[in-house]
């Protein structure tokens, strides 16, 4: 699952541009991941210029 760090995003839309499945909603000052659509490809994590996004993969603690 892609996680959004609180209060870090600049709402620039770079992640939205690369998302292959259109799973990111972005408004003037609001970002959210549509988890049902997201395929966890992680490219939004790599492209973000300021490391807003991360993945809980490999942490082994997720119950969902």
């Amino acid at each position: 699952m892609i996680l959004v760090k609180d209060n870090r995003c600049d709402f620039c839309g770079t992640c939205v541009a690369v998302c292959p499945v259109d799973a990111i909603e972005l408004r003037e000052a609001d970002i959210s991941i549509i988890h049902d659509t997201c395929i966890d490809c992680d490219i939004c994590i790599w492209i973000c210029p300021i490391d807003v996004l991360s993945s809980d993969k490999g942490q082994g603690t997720s119950n969902d």
Partner: peptide
């Protein structure tokens, strides 16, 4: 609508950009 280009996607046009075709800027 800029780099995000979601409106096109809503109309079924493939606008998602490949990583080698975008610069991550600050």
């Amino acid at each position: 609508d800029g780099v995000e280009s979601r409106i096109g996607r809503m109309a079924g046009i493939r606008t998602a950009i490949k990583l080698h075709d975008i610069e991550s800027g600050y």
